[in-house]
């Protein structure tokens, strides 16, 4: 009994001693890159327009999921129907003029090759995104991979 309450007392003291300065320094030290306080909402989301359809964009590095070079408004992916695959599947791409889905998308997580895309690639928007006219929020020093220059 005695040792238990002793530990409890120690714990309370430690929490009080550590917690206070921690809370104070957290507000001082942590700065959002976007220039606003961390506990404030980031910049107001703007009304950005999606880019018009254009030719496929050059890739920045080899394993990059290519950006979507067209509008995707209203392209729903549901259990019933995958709108993207209506143009990008190997049975449809010739008629629609779309790039056929990459071979890498047919492999399931055990490395087995399937006859159509693997369920883990079903939600295309997880990796492929359309672009808007938004400007980068902060400067950065990202450079294209050497081999793709």
């Amino acid at each position: 009994m005695k040792t238990k309450s002793g530990i409890l007392l120690l714990a309370v003291l430690a929490a009080a001693g550590l917690g206070l300065p921690l809370a104070a320094s957290a507000a001082d030290a942590v700065r959002s890159l976007r220039g606003t306080a961390v506990d404030q909402a980031a910049q107001q989301p703007g009304n950005y327009a999606v880019e018009k359809d254009h030719a496929p964009a050059a890739r920045e590095y080899v394993q990059q999921p290519p950006l979507i070079p067209h509008k995707v408004d209203g392209y729903n992916i549901t259990t019933n129907f995958n709108k993207c695959m209506d143009c990008h599947s190997w049975t449809r791409y010739r008629e629609t003029g779309a790039t056929k889905v990459s071979l890498t998308h047919f492999k399931d997580r055990d490395g087995k090759e399937l006859s159509n895309i693997s369920p883990r690639r079903y939600f295309c928007n997880q990796c492929h995104v359309a672009q808007t006219d938004a400007k980068p929020l902060i400067d950065n020093s990202f450079r294209k991979a050497e081999g793709l220059k």
Partner: peptide
């Protein structure tokens, strides 16, 4: 198709057959 509503199940040969 599906311009104003969600479409019913469509057979796309992905995963199990849902009779679309």
């Amino acid at each position: 198709k599906g311009i104003a509503h969600s479409v019913p199940a469509v057979d796309q040969e992905i995963g199990i057959d849902r009779g679309g």
